[in-house]
Design a protein around this nucleic acid. Sequence first.
DNA 1: GTCTATAGGCCGATAGAC
DNA 2: GTCTATCGGCCTATAGAC
Lengths: 212, 212
Amino acid sequence: MCVNSSMNSAPLQHLSGDKADKAKVILDGALQVFTADGYAAASMGRIAAAAGVSKPTLYSYFQDKEGLFVALIQQLTHNLRYTILHLPLDLDPQEPPEQILRQMATSTLNEFSRNASLLTLMRLVIGESERFPDLSRTFVREIIKPMVERFSAFLATHACFGHSDPMVAARIFSGAIAHYLIMQHILHGDDILPLERDRMVNGLIEMMVSYP
Amino acid sequence: MCVNSSMNSAPLQHLSGDKADKAKVILDGALQVFTADGYAAASMGRIAAAAGVSKPTLYSYFQDKEGLFVALIQQLTHNLRYTILHLPLDLDPQEPPEQILRQMATSTLNEFSRNASLLTLMRLVIGESERFPDLSRTFVREIIKPMVERFSAFLATHACFGHSDPMVAARIFSGAIAHYLIMQHILHGDDILPLERDRMVNGLIEMMVSYP
DNA sequence: GTCTATAGGCCGATAGAC
DNA sequence: GTCTATCGGCCTATAGAC
């Protein structure tokens, strides 16, 4: 599985210089091992090896395995939130709203397909949602909620869509996209239930604007 | 976590009498432990204890831990397929198609909310989709594909919905439902992103029938 | 057939050298 | 601060008694 080592921002700012660097190295190793094996099957030894440090160094930067996992997911969530909220979605207000909505769908799908670690985060958060319910709540609060609210605000502003309940319309919109990604990419359903991305987007836009 | 011990049907028919009974007992124990802990964190000892048998008995009925997990997921998938495909969806052809579609949405949501093991199966399949890709493909083939095709056939038959691409409309329909279940129930998003079930269904039906 | 008992290995976490 | 070495424990899987 290909995971790019993009631990490119965010917390750890309370640490200075080399300390933050080494924490970043550890989190990079943790990303590789946790994403490949899941939480329970991952071992601190393999994480240390992947990071190029020794086990006691792990424990000097993070309290235990749970603490390391929580720190990793929070960092990934933070980065994903940054990425999602800075997608250039409604750049050209001159274009018809239908085109802007289409670009919202395609750029979201593109970003999730391009950056495999985003789908990985979804899989981890869902898979560990019983063991780490607070992480799943953080995911909803930091990722899903702002995304849905952004869609909802756009749909509400442009009355031409004519949805009596923009919030629900926004959830259907994002739900269709998320479900598509889960089926095709996470559950490997591409061969069993094939569906071209453009065909999906066309049908989705058609349905969103179909209201008189 | 509440899990009802419903291993009520299906395979194991190649075993006779007591043998099938004991296999069922083991699978019931495996359901509880795998469901609570996930694949990696579950232990054969706890499964044996939950089933009321000893570890060697486990290994006499199933080759190893992987074999037991695969057998469990296949059984759950089989049962879920049976449940889904026998939901009384279009019982009254006299009713307007809009009402039938509404019933499809509500009965699907009801069934998934009532029977917690169905959501559990989704969580397990997604969480272990990298370790057991074939199980996730089976899930798509046996559950998602028939469900979507059923929706699609209904939408295509009743031209009043007017979707130019019923297959995509069906995926949006089921995607909205699945996404709702994942957000509210699996990711514990009920407090953060509250949304009444009826409000969701109303908006979904409105959108599906909104085409002239 | 089903049990008790155990082999053999990997795990998380840490003590102590440097 | 970071390492090597190790402890105690739980794991999967099995051998051997009954």
